[in-house]
Design a protein around this nucleic acid. Structure first.
Lengths: 237, 237
DNA sequence: ACCTACCTCGCTATTTTTGGGGAGGGTAAA
DNA sequence: TTTACCCTCCCCAAAAATAGCGAGGTAGGT
């Protein structure tokens, strides 16, 4: 490691509660000499957990305005695995522009670098660095720390997972092989008749699988069941 | 870095074609002194790309038997972000046991460590180390290299992405805001009436959004559209 | 031996979704 | 200015999915 990030990793591993987790984001921010460091996640039922150096006003506003659904950072990272610099993202929509200006108003810097993270049961988390500086300066900072930051992000996520017992308790229901196939075929776009033919069973039987899968998944209808199975990683389309 | 993995990272970055990519897996295997190193991915349309040291017989058999759909490694990693040792996975089902024995027959070692990777457009890739040894020896090897391996896996994935131009060309269709909301509500389990009420529009209008989203996504029905939108990361439930 | 979970098949009636066809007004880029 | 895409609303008939009831057999674990 080229910077003090190696030592910082040891620090993260010693973190034992939320306050220390929060402190770690502050420490990393100061270590890198930037404006903000933020870790936050959204799980499959929309619950949230986050820590970071954004002002609480900005966090509140973000939640209040449901920016989650128009934030290009969220959107872009949801589609990638690789870390992104914010300027690579698509800010062309009206909503995105308004969001960006609003963020600046609340003290968010113009440059950002976000590492997306995926976890169990559809966990989706982001680890973000933010600062107010020029493109060049930012690129250099990122290039210098790119590799280490991936590791740091992973360690943050590991810690966060260890806090939230819910992610353990909220265990994904297990589908039987036939249930999983049935749902998989539906997710591929087959209707019940086609799926039944594909599985070599009667449509009636297929329906029983769908129903029981629906109940296991706590879904209100087939579409919901497919969506839940997908985001819980129970099926692979 | 504690081993020669640092140097190996430089090697990966110099890789320029598939053969060199393949060679890199062999080199890493020898560097670590283990039986196998494998990188493979599955994208949202089920196409595959892989490189590694498994015998071609095993690869063929794996594809032929559609083990993809019962392999606990795939299944477990699909639900997690964190790397897993194979023995942490659930091998209790009949199918899983048979699969494991079959794998051993084809020269796959009893110990494994797999790092799941998520990419754009629902890309899902795995980076796997495999060996035939005791639990203790394996745990030690992993503990020694854990952190570096994450970085190595990322670099492999970055290279793989740079090869497959398809992942660039197969650009995810963009949904309009209303289309995205409509699909999101359906994915949450609302029916059309409820979704329309939620969005404050008539059910007829909602239907137009669903239809156009369906066409954009190339989906055969609503359930398919939701499934595609989800796996392409176009909506966040 | 019993219980549970899984797999398979059937019926009927109701509700929902889908596939066609329309129409008008707005915004934004070319 | 034209073109294109987005948002909004409407009707109708056919197809599909759902809710509710039923049945029986197999395999595994306590």
């Amino acid at each position: 490691m080229t910077t003090g990030l190696q030592d910082f990793l040891e620090d993260i591993q010693r973190v034992e509660n939320f306050e220390e987790f929060q402190d770690a984001t502050v420490k990393l921010r100061d270590l890198l000499g930037i404006a903000h460091v933020v870790y936050h996640w959204v799980n499959s039922v929309g619950e949230r957990f986050g820590a970071g150096t954004y002002s609480s006003e900005w966090v509140d506003r973000y939640l209040e305005k449901d920016y989650l659904r128009m934030d290009p950072v969220i959107f872009g990272c949801f589609q990638r695995f690789t870390p992104v610099s914010w300027k690579q993202l698509d800010w062309s929509s009206k909503a995105a522009k308004a969001f960006f200006l609003d963020a600046l108003d609340y003290g968010v810097g113009n440059q950002g670098y976000t590492i997306p993270i995926r976890g169990p049961n559809g966990q989706f988390a982001l680890f973000t660095l933010n600062h107010n500086t020029t493109d060049d300066a930012w690129d250099q900072l990122i290039a210098r720390n790119e590799r280490d930051l991936v590791v740091v992000a992973h360690e943050f996520n590991k810690k966060a997972l260890s806090f939230d017992t819910q992610i353990e308790t909220q265990v994904a229901p297990s589908l039987s092989p036939r249930e999983a196939s049935a749902i998989t075929h539906l997710a591929k776009g087959l209707n019940r008749g086609q799926a039944a033919a594909e599985m070599g069973i009667s449509e009636h039987t297929l329906r029983v699988y769908i129903e029981s899968a629906r109940h296991k998944l706590g879904a209100m209808n087939t579409t919901h069941a497919v969506a839940r199975a997908l985001s819980m990683g129970l099926i692979i389309v």
